[in-house]
Design a binder for these strands. Structure first.
Lengths: 235, 235
DNA sequence: CGAAGGATTGATTAGTCTCAACGCAAGTGG
DNA sequence: CCACTTGCGTTGAGACTAATCAATCCTTCG
């Protein structure tokens, strides 16, 4: 059984808002997003909700969940979502067969943690317009990489309400903020797409520094991870 | 060379505020806090600073830093701090000798990531008094575990200014907030110690749910991590 | 065509920030 | 041993960002 075959065989669909994992449950599968976006979130007892992270196609959701007795956060579909859910046994077998896979997952966890840190400073220190601009820059860069110059467009599956939950703002204030971004940077948000005419301008407004995404470091990382875990099966 | 001997041999001191690693540098050592607290932080170009995480004695600082080309955040001393700094070569040798060690570090990374997520919802959704109360609960629980009943005391090495940088508030507002916590929960902050007469009361105020600390899951986790990486050298 | 979800607008308020002093205790140097 | 400095905590007044409450509008979709 190859990785790709395993993904295809275990594909499953979810509707917008449906939970894949709920906080407190014991997670039982290794999940990879095939299409659509997933969101990690946490909720306070009174209902206040914070989106913690967005999982884009090709990313895995929960190596952490795989290792932990009880999930410390929930996972749900941003919109219609397709994921592969690989059961524990099959996942262990796959990882055993292919140590590169374990390393790749490890690396993905490391980048995920770095993004989580950036979100922390985003919410803690930036004001509304910077927060939204920063998140737009991040999601663009994660999908398209850093544009050499000019701008471009990418998927943007969040409603303004979800954008608010991700940035720690209210939906109403996000709306006004998006309008201001339209005015100042000509950024457009339409039909689940984000249009950025001048990426550099938006990045400057957000003080966006892409270092935390560690783009283009994958190969280096695989080697280092190998050395960390002995790399006994490395070719 | 054993782990303990390696720690002792590579001990080093830092004064309050001194940087161990600066964002953008390539980190070269595996660090373990021996005494005092370390803080991970990020800074925006205009100087706004966010403390991302606190590293307590016995914890390692930077398995992530160990794997990455350029640090995406900085690391500094909260107050006088002693750390062991184990060079890359020696670290790799140690990890190779002792796979349990690699697993323990992995587990610590997983808990660190969970704490980072809790900080994200803390800053994004809780108000000032809840944020400070939550952080107090966390730091108490990480040092003392969850008290069966009543309260207790623990180290608390942050100034109000650092507390502000950790919670995304201003120092002035933290001061007023701490005063309110004194009034409402009789919490005291004196001489680098935190006194909590009634932990349950403070936890209720903060909506503190300790699940994310994954206390008492270490053994389970070691096994799971082993299975993730083949566990070839497990006894 | 009606219903539902999402975006937009306005008016008001609350929470937190900003700026500016001041107090207190510990440490330092003469 | 005293004068000075420094770090940290405390207080007050006023400004401002973002939250809240409440409609209304637009779009999509069954």
């Amino acid at each position: 059984m190859t990785w790709e075959a395993s993904l295809a065989r275990n594909a499953r669909d979810y509707l917008k808002g449906a939970d894949l994992v709920r906080e407190g449950e014991r997670p039982a599968a290794l999940r990879v997003v095939l299409s659509g976006w997933a969101q990690k979130y946490k909720q306070l007892p009174d209902g206040r909700r914070q989106i913690l992270a967005l999982v884009l196609p090709g990313q895995s959701c929960d190596l952490d969940l795989f290792t932990v007795a009880r999930a410390d956060h929930s996972l749900s579909a941003v919109r219609r979502l397709a994921v592969a859910e690989i059961g524990r046994q099959e996942a262990v077998a796959l990882l055993d067969q292919c140590p590169n896979l374990a390393q790749a997952l490890c690396w993905s966890e490391i980048v995920t943690a770095a993004i989580q840190r950036e979100w922390t400073i985003n919410i803690g220190q930036r004001n509304a317009i910077e927060r939204v601009a920063q998140l737009m820059c991040e999601l663009f860069a994660r999908q398209r990489g850093m544009p050499a110059s000019g701008g471009g467009e990418c998927d943007f599956l969040l409603t303004q309400w979800q954008l608010a939950e991700a940035t720690g703002l209210t939906q109403v204030h996000v709306n006004r903020t998006v309008q201001e971004l339209r005015r100042r940077c000509a950024v457009e948000l339409r039909n689940l797409r984000l249009y950025i005419p001048d990426f550099a301008e938006l990045a400057a407004l957000a003080a966006f520094n892409p270092g935390y995404l560690h783009l283009g470091e994958v190969d280096l990382a695989a080697d280092r991870a190998a050395s960390l875990f002995g790399g006994r099966e490395q070719g």
